[in-house]
Simulated assay, not measured.
Amino acid sequence: MAVKQKQKEQLDTIVKLGNLDNTYAKINLTQGGAIQSLVYGNKIIIDENQSYPYASSLLFPFANRVEKAKYTFNKTSYELETSAVDNVNAIHGLIYNKTFQVLDKNESSVKLVFNQTEKHKGYPFLYQILLTYTLKSNGLELQMDIKNLDSQSIPFSLGWHPYFNTSNLQESFLIMDTSKRFLVNEIMIPTEQEDIQWSNTNVIGDKSYDDCFELNTNQVILKTPDYQLKLTSQPKADYLQVYTPNDRNSIAIEPQTAPANSFNSQIGLQVIEPNATYTQKWLIEIK
Rank of each mutant, 00 (worst) to 15 (best):
M1Q: 09
M1V: 10
A2F: 14
Q5G: 08
K6T: 12
E9K: 13
E9V: 11
Q10D: 11
L11K: 15
I14V: 12
I14M: 07
I14C: 01
V15Y: 04
N22Y: 10
T23M: 00
A25M: 08
I27F: 05
Q31E: 09
Q36N: 14
Q36L: 15
L38S: 02
I46D: 00
D47N: 15
Q50C: 03
L58R: 10
P61V: 04
A63H: 03
N64V: 09
R65H: 02
E67N: 15
Y71G: 01
K75D: 11
T76R: 14
S77R: 08
Y78Q: 00
V85S: 08
D86I: 03
A90Q: 08
I95C: 04
T99V: 07
F100G: 01
Q101P: 07
S108Y: 12
L112G: 04
F114V: 00
H120G: 07
L130F: 10
K136L: 13
N138G: 03
E141R: 13
E141M: 12
M144C: 12
I146E: 01
L149R: 07
L149E: 12
S151A: 12
Q152F: 08
F156A: 06
W160C: 05
Y163C: 00
S167Q: 15
L169I: 09
E171S: 13
I175Y: 00
I187D: 02
I189V: 07
W198D: 01
G205V: 03
D206M: 14
L215M: 08
N216T: 14
N218W: 01
V220I: 15
K223T: 13
L229P: 04
K230D: 03
V242S: 07
Y243V: 04
N246H: 08
R248S: 05
N249W: 09
S250F: 00
I253E: 06
I253N: 02
Q256S: 11
T257H: 03
A258V: 01
P259R: 00
N261H: 03
F263V: 07
F263P: 09
N264K: 10
N264G: 09
N264Q: 11
Q266H: 12
I267F: 03
V271Q: 01
E273P: 02
T277D: 08
L283S: 15
I286F: 02
I286G: 01
